[in-house]
Amino acid sequence: MDIPDNTECKFNFNSFKIVYVVNSEYYLYKSTALTKARESHKRVSLKLHDKFATWINRWREENLMENQKSACEDWLMGHTEDLVACTTTTESCGAEDATPYFTFNKYKVYKVEYEYETKSEAGEPVEPVKEATN
């Protein structure tokens, strides 16, 4: 093995864990580690997602009432009175064959622009003031 820049490292041959080479950008891996990681990534990702989903659902059941759950959904969709006028859309994303291996909702918010028509004292519409352009 050729080690550049007089870098030192110690090996523990009993563990075969990832060893970071100090003060450099090099990593040492067991020869089959990356292949095994690719093969198990989907399984591990789905297991962690299921574990988190179970925890968050249990927390919701224990700590939130039904009106709080619906208030949260209304807030996400922009249906509360104290927000700027907007339109919120929900897009379902994700696929079973690509990370993160499950479907999830993606929210997009579009601000609503209103054009107010003003009227003069006589009741006739007033033309908007045009800004001067140079």
Rank of each mutant, 00 (worst) to 15 (best):
Y27M: 13
V84L: 08
R58T: 14
W59V: 14
V21A: 01
E39C: 08
G94R: 01
P128V: 03
N105L: 05
A132N: 07
T35I: 13
Y26T: 14
Y110W: 03
N105A: 09
F52N: 14
T35H: 09
E81F: 12
N63Y: 15
T99W: 13
I56P: 00
P100R: 01
K51T: 13
S120W: 04
R58P: 00
T87N: 07
E66F: 11
Y26M: 15
S31V: 03
T80N: 07
E73I: 04
K30S: 12
G123K: 05
K69S: 05
I56H: 06
K47C: 10
K42A: 04
L76A: 04
Q68M: 13
K69F: 03
Y110P: 00
S45H: 10
N67M: 07
T32A: 07
V21Y: 00
E115P: 00
K111M: 06
E131F: 05
T89P: 00
K69M: 10
V44R: 08
A33F: 13
T99F: 14
E25P: 02
T80R: 11
V129S: 15
Y29M: 11
E113W: 01
E124G: 01
S92W: 05
C72I: 13
E73C: 03
K42R: 15
W75L: 15
A122N: 13
G94L: 02
N57M: 15
A37W: 07
T89R: 08
S70C: 05
V129G: 10
P128A: 05
L83H: 14
E61T: 11
R58H: 12
E131R: 09
E117T: 06
T89N: 07
L46G: 00
S31A: 06
F102L: 07
W75P: 00
W75Y: 11
A122D: 15
T35Y: 09
E39T: 11
M77H: 10
W59E: 13
Q68Y: 10
K106H: 14
H79A: 14
E73P: 00
S31R: 08
N63H: 15
N105E: 06
A122R: 12
K30A: 12
V84N: 06
F102W: 06
V129F: 10
E81S: 14
E81L: 12
